[in-house]
């Protein structure tokens, strides 16, 4: 979101699109689970990817993560957080399921 003055007076398209996308992605995820009978792994992969897309929508369209004023540091913080989150979740499951 730019804070350029005349930009500010425009209709908030970005937010409306963001909302629409997130509602649609949510419904797709539900549809994949309820109406498609894909193999479990495929279903889970798809819905996790959809969730990640949604996270990006929030970050980019609502949270202004990409605007100026210290963008680099901000992105670093969130990216590192995601890295650790993946390590923690994936690592724990790998360890605690005792399969491979």
């Amino acid at each position: 979101m730019s804070s350029n003055n005349h930009e500010l007076n425009k209709f908030p398209w970005k937010h409306v699109i963001g909302l629409a996308l997130s509602l649609i992605l949510t419904l797709i995820a539900l549809w994949v689970v309820v109406s498609l009978s894909l193999p479990t792994v495929a279903t889970l992969t798809i819905i996790v990817l959809l969730a990640v897309c949604q996270a990006f929508i929030q970050l980019l369209m609502f949270m202004h993560i990409n605007e100026n004023h210290g963008r680099g540091y901000r992105i670093l913080a969130i990216a590192f957080g995601f890295y650790i989150a993946v390590v923690v979740v994936y690592g724990s499951l790998w360890i605690m399921w005792f399969t491979v």
Partner: peptide, 14 residues
């Protein structure tokens, strides 16, 4: 918020 991501990730893994 970066820290919160990790906090929730621990809960998710549990």
């Amino acid at each position: 918020l970066g820290a919160e991501i990790v906090l929730f990730s621990a809960l998710f893994s549990v």
